[in-house]
Design a protein around this nucleic acid. Structure first.
Lengths: 300, 300
DNA sequence: GATCTCCATAAAGCCGCTCTATCGCGGCGA
DNA sequence: TCGCCGCGATAGAGCGGCTTTATGGAGATC
């Protein structure tokens, strides 16, 4: 016969209450059930644990040695399982997400605040990186979720949500282009551009868009961070193109941002996870909040 | 649904082997049984623990957190239960015994040596004390077994074995009484006696025996320890009466011991335990060895 | 494209647990 | 001293769940 948790719990209850009858009541069992449980436990262990007669229950010396061990063990186990249920309910746990810097600085903060308001015990790990690294981190399971741009055609990834991020031309307030009614692809030709490095998702979109009309961008300056690009623009070095979601298009003084009215200037944005992996419960709520925020921020 | 040890063991086996099929083989179960076990465990916890598809099993991030906790807990539990089985088999544990000093110095050493030869991991606690204290320690369960003299008529004690210890007259080699063919009760009258204190079992026997012929002992000296009594005898202070089992009657030079040929000079010896209490397994073997030794040493 | 592997599912059978009913025994009150 | 009460043990019936066999389906391999 194998030992079961039920038997152990029964034993501990009887030791605590010094009575089969009372322990049975506490465990919502009949008294004969407990008798059988203890009999089976003793048989399985080959040791008498309780000396019982018609009026009293006493713990054997051997049983007494076992009690603290069992109490500690069962206590640890129960504590771990309670913790786990918390995690399972999404009330605790860590959300790991990789995102392009533009999203890490715009979309994510509000989503995280929303989630933490609902479940203050949640922890978040945000890895901001360029598109290829975001995909790599999702694939290697360093993170559970990834928010990245471009078209993801990876058999190892699931696309949970897909939307587009309109690109904006960012220029000095005084720049003549601000007077045009609409800004199109051809307006960018020959305009000195401050661009992010090749390989970033925005740069890829721009290069591809200009390629469709047989042109290449006129690069005034290449920078790594959008923040730097904006500073260049403000200094009068040229204009730049940034995603509408980017925080930099909103908070900077002396510059303006206008959507580029061309379907090619919409950057795909996807929320991805690794195919075949279950999201931790905490990440489920985060995912939903992300999708909601993406709808709100990028479609409006 | 309640969590069971079987489910936990199944989970750990699958995690270890990364395969339901192989884990099933290891646990001597069919593979569907494991599938159901894991399904029930996950349902009970409300968390997905294993990501499994048609070719691979991966532990969920949540499951991975649980693994070390479960391993430690189950390991502790199993270790405790293995220990307990050792104790149950009488291979480990502590034997607690109270005994009159005469037995603690004569009978017990050989019994303990015998037991330890069979099970070297056994530990022994010997409390040597006078009869009333031996009984008290058994009643209060300070010890599991007691070896004492006199008649025990205590409803709270079980007599496991009963025998008698012949009393001997101990005298100087040159003492005239050594020339008698047999030594009887009346030979003790008027003989200066070195006696142990009133209340000890041997003294009680002597007093009671002389009382039957209306006499009281002629006390040359009262001592506490038998060893002292023997020393007094050797110094020529008188003769003394010691149980035949006592070590002192054998090892001392210059003195002799002769049985007293009178039924009153047989001290009852009993092996007792507390009624209603189960002896620890280790004590069972000890009890049997004691009984065997008592037969050998006292009846022969 | 056939086969093999591996996990999931379905249905049946069996084992064990629990429950109700009852007994036995010791304590306690009248 | 007798009878009641309390408590644990036992017996037998019923039910639930676990396990097993058989089978399905999807992906990998050759």
């Amino acid at each position: 016969m194998e030992i079961t948790l039920r038997q152990i719990r029964a034993f501990l209850a009887i030791v605590q209450l010094r009575s089969f009858t009372r322990a049975a009541a506490m465990l919502h069992l009949s008294q004969p059930a407990l008798t059988v449980q203890i009999r089976n436990l003793e048989a399985a262990l080959g040791v008498r644990l309780l000396d019982r007669d018609n009026r009293a229950v006493e713990v054997t010396r051997v049983g007494l040695e076992l009690v603290p061990v069992l109490q500690r063990t069962i206590g640890d186990l129960d504590a771990a399982l309670v913790d786990l249920r918390e995690i399972g309910a999404g009330r605790r746990g860590t959300v790991r997400v990789a995102a392009l810097p533009s999203f890490a600085a715009s979309l994510l903060p509000e989503v995280i605040v929303t989630c933490r308001r609902a479940n203050p015990a949640l922890a978040f790990v945000v890895r901001d990186a360029i598109a290829s690294q975001v995909v790599a981190m999702v694939r290697s399971e360093d993170v559970d979720l990834g928010i990245t741009g471009g078209v993801v055609a990876d058999a190892e990834l699931d696309v949970l949500h897909e939307t587009t991020d309109q690109l904006c031309l960012v220029f000095q307030e005084a720049h003549p282009i601000g007077r045009k009614r609409r800004i199109g692809l051809r307006d960018l030709v020959d305009l000195p551009l401050v661009l992010t490095n090749p390989g970033t998702s925005v740069r890829d979109v721009i290069d591809a868009a200009l390629m469709t009309i047989g042109r290449t961008p006129t690069v005034a300056c290449e920078v790594t961070y959008m923040m730097s690009a904006v500073a260049m623009v403000r200094a009068g070095l040229g204009v730049t193109v940034l995603p509408r979601s980017a925080r930099e298009t909103r908070v900077e003084r002396g510059i303006r941002a206008r959507a580029i009215d061309d379907p090619a200037f919409a950057r795909p944005v996807v929320l991805v996870k690794k195919k075949g992996r279950t999201l931790p419960p905490a990440s489920l709520a985060f995912r939903d909040a992300c999708i909601a925020a993406m709808r709100r921020a990028l479609r409006s």
